[in-house]
């Protein structure tokens, strides 16, 4: 009991937990695929993809950061501002999309509008964060 309370949570533990959790998801996905084949491939595919994402993220981040902090005040600041800029750009984009549809310049299905919006949100968030990260700061 005393020993466990003295244990320190190091970056190594975080990477280990990620890889372990990912491995469990992969095993569950394979087990579901083999043991319950009538359920179809959807759930096993989701489990395998999520598991692989956890394992890959755990290994690559360990190789990149090691015992150094994964995040610090600069990266958190850039992350938050990148998301904010992305949100604003997405709002503008969806307004334009709405007007184009309203004026019947383009005819959009719900699926297309949602798909394009999700893509713009994701890509713009990554692009803004990358740009700010290279610039050094948000100002």
């Amino acid at each position: 009991m005393l020993e466990s309370s003295n244990m320190q949570f190091t970056p190594w533990h975080r990477y280990l937990y990620r890889v372990t959790f990912g491995s469990i998801l992969i095993v569950l996905g394979i087990a579901e695929l083999l043991l319950v084949p009538s359920e179809g491939p959807l759930i096993p595919t989701i489990l395998l993809a999520a598991g692989l994402a956890f394992v890959i993220a755990g290994v690559t981040r360990w190789r990149r950061f090691g015992n150094a902090p994964e995040q610090d005040e600069r990266s958190k600041k850039i992350g938050a501002w990148g998301i904010s800029y992305s949100w604003f750009l997405s709002l503008l984009f969806m307004t334009v999309l709405f007007l184009l549809d309203y004026l019947q310049v383009v005819i959009l299905t719900v699926q297309t509008a949602l798909g394009v919006s999700v893509m713009v949100m994701t890509l713009s968030a990554v692009a803004f964060q990358l740009y700010l990260s290279r610039a050094g700061d948000v100002a």
Partner: peptide
Amino acid sequence: EELAARVQVRRETIVFLEKGKYNPSLR
């Protein structure tokens, strides 16, 4: 790297601090 480890930030943050491109918190 050593300075970054002492103040618990990434090395890139020290790089941008030294260039005067990052405005740090008071902490």
